[in-house]
């Protein structure tokens, strides 16, 4: 057990969206292996504030792995070396005393850097607005859940797709900067359920159109997104989206 790790951090510092950034090197010690990665960054920021330097800006919110706010490309991998976790759930025990850790923002043309490690993921919001919803009124007139029977497998798959937190790790890690895992999760989540089927055609056409407009790249099925996804969103969703898109494009 180590309560006293010494680390060298190489952190991307960038004043604002327009400035050029660069990697800065910081030394940290007395890092406990029980800390989360974000707590380690909090320690770094305390140290920076105490020495009169500008703290490092990074995104974070719930710190329990469900909000999708934290990001970071850590030592060459989205959300770091652990699997199935967001950066806030990555723990310092994944690193060794004396390690050098590269900390960079999620990179993509469609995710411009705002400051330091904070990127603008508004492109994801715009894709959601283009069709990632159902227009069925689901509040105030709730009916019994079993009124519309749904095959168990469909319900499970829809639920799995719905666990996507929209963090953008798929885009950050994809060699093509493709957003297809994210978009497919949103498309599949609804297309599998009766409430979503009504708008299925327009949804997939509009969301894919918006995705292309935002400047994301094209999927080449490397599968890197699925490996790095903190929620284990399956590539199967991309196949579902491809099929949905094909159907929507060929049917009148």
């Amino acid at each position: 057990m180590s309560e006293n790790m010494k680390l060298t951090l190489k952190v991307w510092r960038q004043k604002d969206a327009k400035s050029q950034g660069k990697l800065e090197t910081y030394q940290l010690d007395k890092i406990s292996e029980h800390m989360s990665f974000l707590e380690m960054l909090d320690v770094l920021n305390e140290q920076l504030i105490n020495t009169g330097e500008e703290p490092v800006a990074f995104d974070h919110d719930c710190r329990e792995g469900i909000c999708g706010m934290c990001s970071l490309y850590i030592n060459g991998e989205a959300h770091g070396p652990d699997r199935g976790v967001t950066t806030c759930q990555l723990h310092m025990r994944m690193f060794k005393d004396g390690d050098t850790i590269y900390i960079e923002p999620f990179r993509s043309k469609a995710f411009p850097v705002i400051k330091d490690l904070v990127v603008d993921r508004g492109s994801f919001d715009r894709i959601q607005h283009a069709g990632g919803f159902v227009s069925v009124n689901t509040s105030g007139n709730t009916i019994d859940a079993n009124t519309i029977p749904i095959p168990k497998e469909d319900a499970d798959n829809a639920f799995d797709a719905a666990t996507c937190i929209g963090c953008g790790a798929c885009v950050a890690t994809c060699k093509n900067s493709s957003a297809m895992l994210f978009v497919s999760a949103k498309v599949a989540q609804f297309s599998l359920l009766p409430q979503g089927k009504i708008e299925a055609k327009d949804r997939v056409l509009n969301m894919v159109h918006q995705m292309d407009l935002e400047g994301f790249g094209n999927c080449t099925n490397t599968g890197a997104c699925e490996v790095e996804c903190p929620k284990g969103i399956s590539l199967e969703n991309i196949a579902i989206m491809n099929k949905e898109y094909f159907k929507a494009s060929t049917k009148a």
């Binding site: 060459g76 960079e104 990179r107 993509s108 043309k109 060699k175 900067s177 493709s178 790249g217």
Partner: peptide, 12 residues
């Protein structure tokens, strides 16, 4: 796809 990656590459 290369263009979609953006101008700045990952250092690591």
């Amino acid at each position: 796809n290369k263009a979609a990656r953006g101008a700045v590459k990952y250092a690591m």
